[in-house]
């Protein structure tokens, strides 16, 4: 379809043999209008933010691509819902996808080819805009309170799924002592509920906790991670005494290679305790 010289015009060329993990990862972070794509030799990052309190980033390593070519660093923003819509054009049919970008001002081209029907193909041209620098969040890795839990994705998904949706806030407690890992729902009329997981539970792969941390988050923001949770095979929860919550989701469909989605969620400010 493209001649060699045309091909060389492109600053970014990458191809995925299978679309499924990529599509579910994009859907998992599709909670705001625009997303930022940052491509470099280290791979492709797609970041979505809402306000200044929640950020999600999809990271795809170069090895994951069947083909990955980037000329320097290429950064641009696109409407993330349009990207998701384009990736879903062929529904459940497995496709390969090729992404091409000529550089600033040029559209992002997407070529979709279903594996089971050679007579059909789709070309999408998505308008790009100038990049909006994503916020930078970081946990204090030297802090004595840096707590980490690695869990099995489906189990974690069950627990989150069963949290009372009527609640305004969720309180996360991570502690070296009992209850180890606890989520309490707050702000429900006539009822309060909580769930606890012991660190010895089989769903916990790693429990690395030095000091007790307690922080509250908006339930609606926690629920934005649902789509990522539903497909994640493994989840990492990290936090420190600042309360900033870092969640890593390992996305893996069938026997495809894994992609990672990382969420940062800022805690609610502690009101004066009684």
């Amino acid at each position: 379809m493209l001649t060699q010289s045309q091909y060389e015009d492109y600053k970014l060329v990458c191809r995925l043999e299978h679309i499924k993990t990529f599509y579910s990862s994009i859907k998992a972070i599709c909670f705001s209008e625009f997303g930022t794509l940052q491509a470099s030799e280290d791979g492709l990052l797609i970041t979505v933010e809402q306000g200044k309190s929640i950020q999600a980033t999809l990271f795809i390593a170069p090895e994951f691509f069947a083909e990955f070519k980037v000329d320097g660093a290429q950064n641009f923003s696109i409407k993330i819902s349009v990207l998701a819509e384009c990736l879903s054009l062929f529904g459940l049919s497995d496709c390969s996808v090729k992404m091409l970008y000529k550089g600033e001002g040029a559209p992002l081209l997407l070529l979709l080819e279903p594996h089971d029907d050679e007579q059909v193909s789709t070309e999408c041209s998505i308008k790009t805009t100038n990049v909006e620098e994503p916020m930078e969040y970081e946990l204090d890795s030297n802090s004595s309170s840096l707590n980490k839990i690695f869990m099995r994705g489906p189990d974690m998904s069950h627990i989150f799924h069963e949290l009372d949706k009527a609640a305004d806030e969720y309180e996360f407690t991570i502690s070296p002592l009992k209850p180890h890992f606890k989520i309490t729902t707050l702000g429900v009329m006539q009822a309060e509920s909580s769930v606890e997981v012991a660190k010895s539970s089989d769903m916990i792969i790693l429990f690395n906790c030095r000091a007790t941390t307690v922080a509250r988050y908006k339930s609606q923001q926690i629920r934005l991670t649902n789509k990522a949770l539903q497909v994640a095979t493994k989840v990492a929860i990290k936090t420190d005494d600042s309360g900033l919550l870092e969640l890593h989701f390992m996305m893996q469909a069938d026997d495809e290679e894994e992609m990672y989605v990382r969420f940062f969620i800022t805690p609610l400010l502690e009101l004066d305790a009684n």
């Binding site: 069963e162 006539q190 509920s193 997981v197």
Partner: peptide, 13 residues
């Protein structure tokens, strides 16, 4: 299962 416990307190009307 999996060493998980859930607790709920419901107000008596």
């Amino acid at each position: 299962k999996l060493e998980t416990t859930k607790q709920a307190l419901i107000a008596i009307v």
